[in-house]
Design a protein around this nucleic acid. Structure first.
Lengths: 208, 208
DNA sequence: TCCTTAAACAAACACTTGTTTTTCTAAGAG
DNA sequence: CTCTTAGAAAAACAAGTGTTTGTTTAAGGA
């Protein structure tokens, strides 16, 4: 039988952390095994004791990242039952995730499945767990029947994914303001009348 | 003096075309000089007779791509003076550009300046020429005073940049429908009243 | 104490990368 | 018919890549 006191697992976590940080800041292709090994204080070959390949290391990071961002998402969204507020909160949570917090979540934004063809299926599957959050959230939005919810989801996801290239955490805008603005751009156009009125009272979309 | 009949320039164009296609379909890093040489029917070393480096080759492709997409943009947008229709047309032009047409335009979408740190400045400068088109277009939109036009532009650009990952030219949606949908999601929320009414008559945003 | 084994080291391997150098070819100029 | 030279071939270079292999270390169980 196995001993209940395994030798230090911590180096494995350290390795994973280092990989996450490097994947998040440099991307997958630009990060070498030697970079990761150096950052976690070991030699290149030692990495392969823990993970069979560089791509498997990415999968482990990705898995953790998805779990974290889904958890952050659900925690944030549970604060209210109002569908449009939920969208706003979800957006700000996403923006927060890619600027602060752990590097694992940033990997989900930076490394797109389409960029690693060999792992396209696995990565897409994981990422789908996150995108499904938005799917449910958008399904719950009270919008006009003519609205193509799938296109709406893709528009929002695209806008969110791009925030990594322009959002400056030291800038004037807060993640919450981005969420409110993006939501505000949409709400009155597509919401059913009663929900639009309810939201516009507290939203920032109208001046007059 | 130089002879007016230079030897065949066409191999240079062929080289550029091959590079554009590969950069567009595989990305910059994943495309090797050997790939490009093979696709243009020459040997790796011969590429360097025409371009001093792989990155210089990218710059040449990028430059052509920006010129083409700006031209396509302006030609499309000039068809109407209505600001919201212009936005819709601009979006559909973008979606068309990344699916049909030349590979040069697809490179602009696929290869983001942030991914090639050594040429960040040059690429950003070129890309700005394209993004400026949207900036002017959004400046001309009659929207409420509370609307942050900069955020609106970033939202639209993000959504557009992401279309490459999901838009299927063989699918049910046409680029024009994407443009109309995206515009429809926005127009009534942020447009000043009279323009919103004008647009909603022909748009597809309201059912009731 | 002996043995097992998790964990890492040390060093190379096999290959790919962008790039350079040298050599050849063929077309136009004089 | 030479001479020059644009243009490409051929082959290698130097650096970097992911990965594998053989060896060492040290902790825990018998």
């Amino acid at each position: 039988m196995k001993s209940n006191l395994q030798r230090s697992n911590n180096r494995n976590d350290l390795l994973l952390d280092a990989a996450a940080e490097l994947f998040a800041t440099q991307g997958f292709r630009s990060t070498t095994i030697r970079d990761i090994a150096k950052a976690s204080g070991m030699l290149p070959g030692s990495v392969y004791y823990h993970y069979a390949s560089k791509e498997e290391l990415l999968l482990a990071v990705y898995d953790t990242g998805v779990a974290q961002i889904v958890a952050a998402f659900e925690a944030a969204v549970s604060r209210t039952n109002h569908p449009w507020e939920r969208l706003s909160i979800a957006i700000s949570t996403h923006v927060e995730a890619i600027t602060q917090d752990s590097h694992y979540m940033r990997v989900i934004n930076r490394v797109l499945p389409e960029h690693i063809p060999d792992q396209l299926g696995a990565l897409t599957e994981m990422r789908a767990k996150y995108e499904a959050c938005f799917q449910r959230l958008i399904e719950d939005l009270p919008v006009n029947a003519s609205v193509n919810r799938s296109l709406l989801r893709l528009m929002v996801l695209g806008a969110l994914n791009h925030t990594q290239f322009w959002f400056d955490p030291k800038g004037e805008l807060t993640p919450a303001e981005v969420g409110e603005a993006f939501t505000g751009f949409l709400v009155e156009s597509i919401a059913t009348d009663q929900t639009a009125e309810k939201t516009s009272e507290k939203g920032d979309s109208h001046a007059s």
